[in-house]
Design a protein around this nucleic acid. Sequence first.
DNA 1: TAAGAACAGTGACATATGTCATAGCCCAAG
DNA 2: CTTGGGCTATGACATATGTCACTGTTCTTA
Lengths: 204, 204
Amino acid sequence: MIKCLLVEDQTLVRLGLANLLNLDEDIFIDGHAEDGLQAITQLTQRSFDIVLLDMRMPNLDGLGVLEKMRESLNNTPVLIITTFEDCDVLVKAINLGARGYVLKNIELEELIDAIKRVIAGKRVLQSAVTDYLLQQQLTPQQCLTAKEQVVLQCMSLGMSNKVIANRLDNSEGTIRNHVSQVLAKLNVKDRTQAVIKAINQNLI
Amino acid sequence: MIKCLLVEDQTLVRLGLANLLNLDEDIFIDGHAEDGLQAITQLTQRSFDIVLLDMRMPNLDGLGVLEKMRESLNNTPVLIITTFEDCDVLVKAINLGARGYVLKNIELEELIDAIKRVIAGKRVLQSAVTDYLLQQQLTPQQCLTAKEQVVLQCMSLGMSNKVIANRLDNSEGTIRNHVSQVLAKLNVKDRTQAVIKAINQNLI
DNA sequence: TAAGAACAGTGACATATGTCATAGCCCAAG
DNA sequence: CTTGGGCTATGACATATGTCACTGTTCTTA
């Protein structure tokens, strides 16, 4: 029996997923958490075989949970289950020790398989994820660095340089430099054109 | 027994939600669709008591489904279940005939209640949604004039004020004024946000 | 006819944006 | 160990952007 902690902020999704997974005879959703803070609390009080972790959450997001776990030397294996298909977040999550990363559009059997593979000590990257990674690698012309991608994402959300600087804890000048780099690499003249290009090409 | 068509692109979410809802003795998920096109196909082949509709989907999104349904005079009641908290999308959905609009972080009992209320002919707006709506209504966004629409189109093509001025044979100051009006009406702070909104809302 | 709108324009003003040069730090590859 | 790339930062600079107030003209409509 695999004891799972399921961390997901949307109630419906969490309960639904728990029901589905509990149908498998080897899997038991042993704990629920609605955000990162609750997850940390659960992890300090109890032990689980695996953590099923969403990335976008209030209070403390997935990356934050991974950081806290690393700090407290908690090495419970973590499988990321998310909608967010961002290369940078994926890389960060893996670097922070996540053992698997799958998207929510995965089939149920695949997810169950992924859980068992993680438990078996394997690393799991859904094919859609690896495809995305490969695709990113194969377009070296626009070859944005990790930071530049994050900045572009922020731009695509309509943030000003000042806001981005606050969000990423950098000086505004630094962000300006990154923006300048992004514009050069995307071969556009201003942030609006960059955002249009990013949206059209799904670079965000 | 309420026969439901569940339209949701993420497999896990769809199956989980279906399981949860099927627990209710009055509700039966009678059809699944992974995107808008599949939903339309299902709706032309069978009849349902209600459609549970996600907004963000590949191929044909929630608004598209509502449009198609209206075109084909299909008046099956629709309850929107989405993560997307955008006021404009909400308003558009309601105008296109959606009978309810709830967010995915709703509690299960509330959702079941919402379904039954829609079936009973009532309009359902989750309190979180109405709060947001009220807040937005206090700053009523007026319609863009013809000229403003043209200017917004140009902005969405990445043109600077100077370029737009040349293109439309106006002074740059005039264009600046129009841009300023557009920003105010769209309730955004700069041209980048305006373009993002225009693209997302198909205002161009 | 009077009122109200859309449209065009100007000038002044405050910020935001983007570029450039320069420089330090860190880390990985050679 | 050296080199280069990525990240951070600063200061200076030119230009773009957005706001405001105010002035017109031309319509439509109450």
